[in-house]
Design a protein around this nucleic acid. Sequence first.
DNA 1: TAAGAATTATGCTTTTAAACATGCAAATTT
DNA 2: AAATTTGCATGTTTAAAAGCATAATTCTTA
Lengths: 242, 242
Amino acid sequence: MFKSIILKQMNIKSTLEKVISEDLAEIWSLLNAEEKRLITDNFEIHTFKKNQIIYAEKDDPVYLWCLLKGKVKLYKDGIGGRQQILRLYRPIQYFGYRAYFANEPYVSSAAAFEPSSVGSLPMELVKSMIDNNRDLAWFFIHELSKNLGGSDTKIVTLTQKHIRGRLAEALILLIDNYGFEDDGKTLKIYMAREDIANLSNMTTSNAIRTLSAFAQERIITVDGRRIKIVDEEKLRQISKFG
Amino acid sequence: MFKSIILKQMNIKSTLEKVISEDLAEIWSLLNAEEKRLITDNFEIHTFKKNQIIYAEKDDPVYLWCLLKGKVKLYKDGIGGRQQILRLYRPIQYFGYRAYFANEPYVSSAAAFEPSSVGSLPMELVKSMIDNNRDLAWFFIHELSKNLGGSDTKIVTLTQKHIRGRLAEALILLIDNYGFEDDGKTLKIYMAREDIANLSNMTTSNAIRTLSAFAQERIITVDGRRIKIVDEEKLRQISKFG
DNA sequence: TAAGAATTATGCTTTTAAACATGCAAATTT
DNA sequence: AAATTTGCATGTTTAAAAGCATAATTCTTA
């Protein structure tokens, strides 16, 4: 789950190593030697195939999950099998703890977007560590608060913005979350149109249609699932209201 | 803000006193004598008129607020001045802390629905108390987690349910939040049609229309702002999907 | 490599809800 | 009490997005 563990027990190097030293420090650095040992002894690494479910709505939460490699979506199944993607995770981010803290079953599901490695740690252990480490408590208070602000904002944008605005916003989210390939233009995530639709609260048809429109307007170019952002400024403009 | 204070310094009795001994115990009982004294010395009581704003989006968060008497809505202004009501508060509930914990300005506004008394406590103080009281940390972790689950669920219901379903759900929320008058049928909150619309993500026209439809179908009766729930079962059925 | 399945693209139709218009009634002000 | 404002009700029109059908393309896998 954490730096030393990953480097010892997994064969993920280079790219990940970079991320770890920046992001992971966030939790790891909050722990003392004893806590670090506890984690080392109790965490497990799991691998998930593309589209495999990590946990599902109504399950009881047992683990804290930490994405090590790959991409994970948190989503909720709605009316008529329509899915709403709530959040996207990248290494090294933690998820799956909210329901445990709320003392209720999961209200959403998590699945791997692409082949992924995920570490797990029993929430019972996390709980006892929070009891003895105020910095860890603050870490979760902060995370939950950021997410709640995000969800509240999402309620308004997804219900009030028009299709073009919602799609533009989704693309910007993808930029912010996963960034670009080395060319500085191509999105580093390759989603099915259906997933793009589920992220922006629209039907697959409309996602396809609107992506085509954006391409026509030279805001993006589309080559299969490869999306190149040509005019990010315009995109942000449409997102604000278009 | 807390039991002794309220009873000493305010003239709210009977109804409130009941609530306090149940709900308020939640935080008050977590505190030691020193902490209770700190609160007593630093809290202030404010009164707000109907529709008066307590804090606004983009403000910097400074206080923890606790609703003592009245009703408060948390809302966000969206496109074209359309408002989305995110949460409703009743005595004794706390609000206004999320943005501080997230270390960002408010993303939503709070306003009194009806004449209200609200206590304030500097967040700086709350922060230092959390540092020294793990139960208080858990209180906020729990609240934030519940709210996040609620917001995530709301994203789906507000975007995917049809108008009738959304209105039915809003009415059920009002039942759960504020309950009934002594007759066991009349909603204990009297909202303008516009607010009902803002709660259910629809235009005022459609809120009016759909309320009329529900009345026609003998699910509710409407007399001005007085809404009587005639067939709660049917309402829940429509909310699930109708 | 061919066959089949899944995904993407596009046009057309239908449905839903927003926008607009108007009338009425209750409440507030003068 | 008259005048004005505000809120509620309802019908009509318009626009947005969903739904559906079909075809083309890409991806799987037999």
